[in-house]
Simulated scan of single mutants.
Amino acid sequence: MGNTDVNIIKSSGEKVKFSLDKLRNSLQRTGASKNSVNKILDVVRDELYQGISTKEIYNRAFALLKKEHGHFASKYKLKKAIYELGPTGYPFENFISAILKYTGYETSTGEIVQGDCVKHEIDVLAHKNNTTTIVECKFHGEQGLKCNVKVPLYINSRYIDVKSHWNKNKNKTTQLTAGWVVTNTRFTEDALQFGTCVGLHLLSWDYPKNEALKDKIDSLGLYPVTVSTLLTKREKQFLLSRDVVLCRDLINDVFFLDHLGISEVRKVKILKEIKALCDN
């Protein structure tokens, strides 16, 4: 059976033709060698059947990658790891705040800010070069859910209300100049069209091209702790509950790993995986 003849089921329930190139690209993005990628593709291609789910395909590829290269498997698991930041969405806000910090912003989360009409709780407030940005995060805990037009419509209204009050307040040392909408999934076409039209900065898993969330994470080496293939679910949840969202935070501070009672042997393996990820 040719690989282009297999219908696969996406997380949204949609049926599409299997794309070997798409799978190859996501494997190559991890930094795995061409030889390793081809070996995995050969195995996965032989195991395809009509109606297989994308989840099943990617889980199989992940298992094969993990067997050969642990930290490459972690990178491959990035999208799933972002979903694991849930279910409240609060760790996702912390994660976005951390990404902005590493790009030169001063940030705070969950601030109550006065608008002309009402007060608003802002997910992330970011300051840089005498300007302020308000960032609203829309987190989805499962695949297949998109950010529709209602989200930028609502966030733009809040942004206008806050901006008007902020910029005429003489006590403020910055000008509020930008509103962001960030989601871990994707925007619908209408959401992109409206958001772009009113001047909001939209950031999703794969938008804007080459500057999307996945690109920022890769280029900055800012992986969430949930990507680790060695930490257990309980250990990840403990770290998130202590506001430790970045793998990078664990490299210089092993206090929480010690607090969890992780053995020296495991700790060495975990830190090796994390360092390889962040350095890569």
Rank of each mutant, 00 (worst) to 15 (best):
K209Y: 06
L260T: 02
G110P: 10
E273H: 02
G31V: 08
E136R: 07
H201K: 14
I9M: 03
T232V: 01
L85C: 04
S263P: 10
K216T: 12
D161P: 02
G195N: 05
N59A: 04
P208E: 06
I160L: 11
E136F: 08
Y90A: 12
I160F: 10
E189K: 15
D215N: 13
Q237T: 14
N130E: 14
A212K: 14
L200H: 04
Q237N: 14
V182E: 03
R60M: 05
R24T: 11
L41M: 06
E47W: 02
N3T: 14
Q28T: 13
K170L: 12
T131H: 12
L145M: 13
G51C: 00
G70W: 02
Q50S: 12
H127K: 12
F194I: 04
T226C: 04
F194T: 05
Y90S: 08
E14Q: 11
E47V: 00
L48K: 04
C247K: 00
D249Q: 12
C137H: 07
G141P: 08
E47T: 06
A126V: 09
L23S: 02
A191P: 05
G144V: 05
L192H: 11
H259F: 14
K233A: 04
E264T: 06
V113Y: 02
G110V: 08
T174F: 02
E56H: 07
C197R: 15
S26M: 04
V225L: 06
D215P: 02
K39I: 10
K209N: 11
Q28D: 04
K233V: 12
E136C: 05
L239I: 09
V268A: 15
I40K: 03
D258V: 00
L100H: 06
D46N: 15
E211I: 01
E273K: 04
Y154H: 10
T132G: 03
K128N: 06
Q237I: 07
L222A: 05
L277W: 08
C197G: 03
Y49R: 11
S74C: 15
V254E: 15
G89S: 11
L85A: 09
A126H: 05
T30F: 10
F62P: 02
I9S: 09
K75T: 09
